[in-house]
């Protein structure tokens, strides 16, 4: 059963990959990569069950975390071209 789930997740990952390659805007690519990341989380979880090593679920949590922070970082970079930007520049004065 988990083999079928793995195949299903992999198939939808490859579909998401086509959108990442097609674009056309950078936001489409970020969206596709974000969805790809969510599916990777599920793939890790399913593989954990398939190989009967539930410790994999910890890796899935870590991956979900990095996926979220990575998406926010990429979006902030494309919006402001600066990762440390804030609305209140006086806070930057050291």
């Amino acid at each position: 059963m988990f083999v079928a789930a793995t195949v299903g997740v992999l198939a939808s990952m490859s579909l998401a990959m086509t959108r990442a390659l097609m674009g056309p805007t950078v936001y489409d690519r970020v969206l596709a990569v974000n969805t790809f990341g969510t599916k990777t989380v599920l793939l890790i979880a399913v593989l954990g069950f398939l190989t009967e090593r539930p410790e994999f679920l910890d890796l899935a949590i870590v991956y979900a975390l990095i996926n979220f922070i990575g998406t926010i970082a990429v979006l902030k970079f494309f919006e402001y071209r600066d990762l440390g930007w804030t609305r209140h520049p006086e806070a930057d004065a050291e």
Binding site: L31, N34, A45, L57, D58, I61, A64, L75
Partner: peptide, 30 residues
């Protein structure tokens, strides 16, 4: 293991709308 699965789902439910919103508003201002 059940607790971890629930945690993964809670995390996805919590972060998915935030990144969706960030993506939509970034695309609008882009």
């Amino acid at each position: 293991v059940l607790v971890r699965l629930v945690l993964i789902y809670a995390f996805l439910l919590f972060t998915s709308p935030i990144s969706t919103h960030a993506l939509a508003s970034a695309a609008l201002s882009g």
